[in-house]
Every structure is written in C-alpha cells, then in structure tokens.
C-alpha cells in the first residue's frame, strides 16, 4: 500500500485533485495546460543550459591551472625568501669572541701546587707596571700571557704575607701559617 502510494506520480496526483473540484472536461483541459506549460519550462531550461557542460569543463580547467600556478608561485616565493635570508645572515656573520678560562700553574715560592684560574685576560702592560714584588725589585721582564694571572695573584699573596708579618712582628707567639693566608683571602673576598 505504502509502495503504491509512493509511486503515485505528480501528474496522477494532480488529476485526482482536479477531479475533486472540476468536471471531467475541465479536468482534461486543465491537465493539458499543466502538461504544455511543463514542456515549455523544460524546453526553456534546455535552451538555457545548452553547452553548460562545456562551460563547466572550461572553468574546471581554468581553476586547475590557476591552482597549479598558485602552487608554483608560492614555492618560488618561499625559496627566494629562504635564499635572501641565508645571504643576509652570511653577510652579517662576524668572528665569535670566546672568552675562555685561563688556567696556569702557580709560580709561587710558597710551595703550593694550587692551580689558579681567572675569568678574564688581564692587560699585560698594566700588570707589568703594577707588579711590585715585596723585595722592592721592579720587574720589567717580558711576561708570558699564560702566567700573567698567576703572577698577579702570587704578588698579591706575597704582599699580603709581608704586610701581616710586619704588623705582627712584635707578637712572638703568633706564627703565620698557610691556612691563615687562605682565611685572610677568604675574608678579603667577603669584603672584610
């Protein structure tokens, strides 16, 4: 029943409806009017859509081509940008300054083999002028850059020992030890 209802054509449905309202001859006339009009509409649609598939194909080809060109253009742009960036980076690159720790062995005569390090490279000429050993002899000899920091530190250490020794000369009971020097260094470092 349902299938039969589904298969009722729009034309059959139209006829049934017209039969409810009009006599048989009027129904036939109206039905013809509807059929003719439908045929005219179909003909007009056919005329209007003539060559539509050709136009669609042309448009599709145009779209495909423009998409392809868009991909090429984008790739070319990206590549040229990359090359430009690389060229710019290369032109701007300078030697990189690496400040490395200078490590050297102590040349101190105090007998310690402590390795001294410094984070900066001192100016050789200024160190030579400042370096005044506790014996009062000004050293003007050429100093290798490798030992500059160690020499400076030793000189400082010697000067400190002599200062302490002089100030404590009246105190017979006190003897300066290596550990005392280390402690004093530590205190000096802490700003005392």
């Amino acid at each position: 029943m349902n299938d039969r209802k589904k298969n009722v054509s729009p034309q059959d449905e139209l006829r049934a409806l017209l039969n409810e309202e009009y006599d048989a001859s009027t129904v036939v006339g109206l039905e013809k009017v509807f059929v003719i009009h439908t045929q005219n509409v179909a003909r007009a649609s056919e005329i209007a859509t003539r060559n539509l598939s050709v136009h669609v194909h042309e448009k599709l080809r145009g779209t495909t081509l423009s998409r392809r060109y868009a991909v090429y253009a984008t790739s070319a742009f990206v590549l040229s940008s990359l090359v430009a960036v690389l060229v710019f980076v290369n032109s701007q690159t300078q030697p990189i300054v690496v400040v490395s720790q200078v490590a050297s062995k102590s040349t101190s005569t105090s007998g310690t083999n402590q390795v001294l390090t410094t984070n900066s490279i001192a100016e050789i000429s200024s160190l030579a002028a400042k370096y005044v050993p506790h014996q009062g002899i000004t050293v003007t000899a050429k100093i290798g850059s490798r030992d500059v920091a160690a020499i400076a530190r030793d000189a400082e250490e010697d000067q400190l020992i002599s200062t302490i020794s002089e100030s404590m000369v009246s105190t017979d009971l006190w003897i300066l030890q290596e550990s005392d020097v280390d402690n004093l260094f530590a205190e000096q470092k802490n700003g005392l």
């Binding site: 649609s45 056919e46 669609v56 194909h57």
Partner: peptide
C-alpha cells in the same frame, strides 16, 4: 573524470537551472 562530469552535468542541468530560476 571528464566523462563523468559531462554526464553529471547533462543529467542534472535542467533541474539545477529550474531551481535557480
């Protein structure tokens, strides 16, 4: 694809045009 698109357009062109109209 070309053949399929041609058949597709020809089969439904009247319907699409009518709805659009």
């Amino acid at each position: 694809r070309d053949r399929a698109v041609t058949a597709f357009v020809r089969k439904h062109q009247s319907f699409v045009y009518s709805v659009a109209y």
